[in-house]
Computed example of a mutant assay.
Amino acid sequence: MAPRAKSTTEAAEPIRRSSRISAQPKSEPAKEVKKAAPRTKKRSADEGDGEDTTPAVKKSKAEEAAAEAPDTEESNEKAAQLASIDVGDTLPSFTLQNEKGEDVDVATLSAEKGVIFFLVPKADTPGCTTQACGFRDTYPDFTAQNFAVYCLSADSPNAQSKWQTKKELPYPLLSDPQRVLITALGAGEGGKTKRSHFIFEKGGKLVEKKIPVKPADSPKLALEYVKSIAAAA
């Protein structure tokens, strides 16, 4: 028996189904989304495996200022090293820098001759220049009486050196930035230096002090006292 012939509809069905399937858009495979790897700090060659890589915490301005500020206790301890020096007391051993940045033990200055310290509030200011130039102009008179002259202030050695050169000051200048010796002499108050002068005889005993004193009077009064010592001797 011959097989039944497919009807027109049945024969066309596969074609239509095939057309429908081919007409559908091909679905593309989903693209794989790559996650960005976390950024890591590049290690330097000398970093160890066990080194703490925690980022540094930025300090506040107040914390930075506190870190840079001088140690108050240390400064106070340094200032307390010298007791008060009054008439009759001996010049203690204490090291300061001169205008050249050289260390000077003030106790050694009076070993061979008398010493005069004149103190100024600030180098190269009008009143201080008047006082300094007064000692400059009478400097030969002091040396003739076997007395050395020193300017003492809280200025830096560099500032003192410039002032010395500018005004042709023939004597050394001593820098006491923490006002340790200045305070011991009684001329440091409220972070300032009182204009004054102090006379130590040979051997280091304080015999005369003028505090405060006027700029023009300081060299004159100091010289008068030195001459009176020579006359008495």
Rank of each mutant, 00 (worst) to 15 (best):
N146M: 02
V120A: 10
G88C: 00
V213N: 11
F117L: 11
K34Q: 14
F94M: 11
E102Q: 12
D141L: 09
P14A: 08
Y139M: 04
D103R: 01
K194C: 03
K100A: 15
V207C: 09
A65K: 14
F142W: 05
E73T: 11
Y225R: 15
L173A: 08
S218Q: 03
Q145D: 02
Q131W: 03
A132Y: 01
R43P: 10
H197C: 01
F118S: 05
E99S: 15
S161Q: 13
S44F: 09
R179S: 12
R179K: 13
T40K: 12
I21C: 03
G50E: 11
P92G: 06
D217C: 00
S196I: 09
P14Q: 07
S7F: 06
L173P: 06
Q97T: 13
P170C: 02
G134R: 08
T72W: 00
D176R: 13
E102S: 10
E201A: 12
A233L: 06
A12S: 05
R195N: 07
S7G: 13
K162Y: 06
I21L: 09
G203K: 10
Y139I: 00
A233F: 04
I85Y: 06
N146K: 11
A65E: 13
K6Y: 12
K31W: 09
Y150P: 04
K41C: 01
T108M: 04
F198R: 06
N98P: 08
C128V: 02
K202F: 05
V115M: 10
N98F: 07
D105W: 02
G50C: 06
A230R: 11
F94A: 08
P14M: 02
A154P: 01
D103F: 09
K167W: 13
Q24Y: 10
I116M: 03
S18H: 09
A187V: 01
P177M: 00
A66N: 13
Y225N: 14
L223P: 00
K35G: 06
D176F: 01
G48K: 03
V207G: 07
T129V: 07
Q97H: 11
K100G: 14
T9Y: 14
S75I: 15
P14T: 04
A80T: 01
D105A: 11
G88P: 02
T125A: 04
W163S: 02
A222H: 07
L181M: 14
P219T: 07
L181V: 10
A232G: 00
D52W: 06
P121Q: 03
T129M: 08
E201Y: 01
V213M: 08
T183K: 15
S153H: 06
A159K: 08
A80L: 02
L206Y: 03
S161N: 15
K34G: 09
K61T: 08
T129G: 05
E112H: 04
Q131S: 05
A69V: 01
E28C: 04
K214V: 06
A159G: 01
E99Q: 15
E28F: 12
T138Y: 12
